[in-house]
Amino acid sequence: MIPGALRRLWAEPRAPGAPRRVWRDWFLFGVIVVIAVLETALRPDVVWPPVALAMALGLACTMLWRRTHPLAMIALTFGAVIAVSVASLAAGVESVGLGAMAFVVLLGYALLRWGSGREIVLGTAIVLVAFTVGISSDYTTLGEAVGAFIFMASPFVVGASVRVFSVSRARELDQVRLREREQLARELHDTVAHHVSAMVIRAQAGRVVAATQPAAAGEALAVIEAEGSRTLAEMRVLVGALRDRGDAALAPARGVVDVPSLAAADERVAVRLTGDLDDLGPAVGAAVFRIAQESVTNAVRHARGATRIVVAVTGSPDAVRCVVTDDGDTVLAPRSAGYGIVGMTERATLLGGTITAGPGSSRGWVVDAVLPRAAAA
């Protein structure tokens, strides 16, 4: 089991999204330089002051690349620490270094947080060698050695914990997006099946009456053409939508006409439908209902102190807009981090629309979604 775990660790890729140098890195670099210079000037017990200062200033640069090149920074820093420790041990002097060198512990965090599996293995081995050499050259008591090990290992543990949490969070978000796409695909599957069935029935009827009623046959062809065009439009939306299972929901997909039923969820809910809401595509109508439903559910559950929840759906020639607002306490109900927002965003994006969610101008929470009447591919 252990060799298998090591093989999986060795093959682990780097964590995605490692940020490059930001202003905080430059600020940290500046703080390290100032502390190192002051420590060298003010501490009379520093061993080999020029060497200690040069090592601190040189290795401070590793803070700028610790996330994008974690193994290289570990090798450079702890390689220098090993070399200086061996030299001080050979010279019979105390360990060479400054208190400012404590910044090296950040390299361990960066290695576990952003490095690949092989970088983690090799980097950890280098750190252990450097720790062993350092303890050998400046050993005092067992308690101090254990304390130093805990101090050095803590950033590794924190980095690994943050990485595991981040990966777990990303997987959960991916599952939410996949479930939303699967639901959208099922709804579109029902719509396309309906259109195709109508085309088949019209084609069969046209064949029966083609010989005796040519006009009726022409009418059947016109209906087939219209149904075919609508089917192709809905099929374009299927691009990118995923399905995991073969079972299809038997209940018809809900649309804009079903939005008023959300008022039954709570007496505080009010629904307003205005504008042109006829002839919406089934995918767009289902998306409007889904967004309104999710927003009302979140408001009912989390909008503390809310006295009114308003769902306003407005249709225009090119788009349909769904705005859900409440007058609850936004401080006590931070709903922006929920998975429901992720699902609504995924659905709106698939249809070529946009959605925003956040605190209102005065109080409460606002979800504002705009979807094109003709769903984008």
Rank of each mutant, 00 (worst) to 15 (best):
A5E: 04
R14I: 02
R20A: 14
V22P: 05
D25W: 14
L28T: 12
I32H: 15
V34G: 14
V34L: 15
L38G: 13
L38W: 12
A41K: 03
A41T: 08
M55A: 15
A56K: 10
L59V: 06
T77Q: 05
T77G: 09
F78N: 03
V86M: 12
S88C: 03
G92V: 07
V96C: 07
L98C: 09
A100V: 10
V105R: 15
L107M: 11
G108C: 11
L112F: 12
T124W: 04
T132V: 11
Y139F: 15
T141G: 13
G143A: 14
G143E: 14
E144G: 11
A148L: 13
A153T: 08
V158E: 06
V158G: 03
S161L: 09
S161W: 07
V162R: 00
R163N: 06
S166Q: 09
S166Y: 01
S168C: 01
A170W: 01
R171K: 08
D174L: 06
D174K: 01
R177K: 14
Q183S: 10
A185C: 08
L188F: 07
H189E: 09
V192K: 06
V196G: 01
S197R: 10
A211C: 09
T212H: 14
Q213G: 02
A215N: 10
A220I: 01
L221C: 02
A222C: 02
V223H: 02
S229M: 09
R236Q: 15
L238Q: 14
G246R: 14
D247H: 12
D247T: 14
L250N: 04
A253T: 12
V257C: 00
D258W: 10
V259G: 06
A270S: 06
L277H: 07
D278E: 13
D278G: 06
V284T: 12
G285K: 04
A286V: 02
A287W: 07
Q293S: 07
E294Y: 00
S295P: 00
N298C: 03
N298I: 00
A299E: 01
R301G: 00
A303Y: 08
A306N: 12
I309M: 07
V311H: 04
V311K: 01
V323R: 05
A333E: 04
S336A: 13
G340L: 09
G340Y: 05
I341R: 07
A357T: 02
S362C: 05
R363Y: 14
R363G: 03
G364C: 10
W365V: 07
V370K: 02
V370G: 03
P372G: 05
P372A: 10
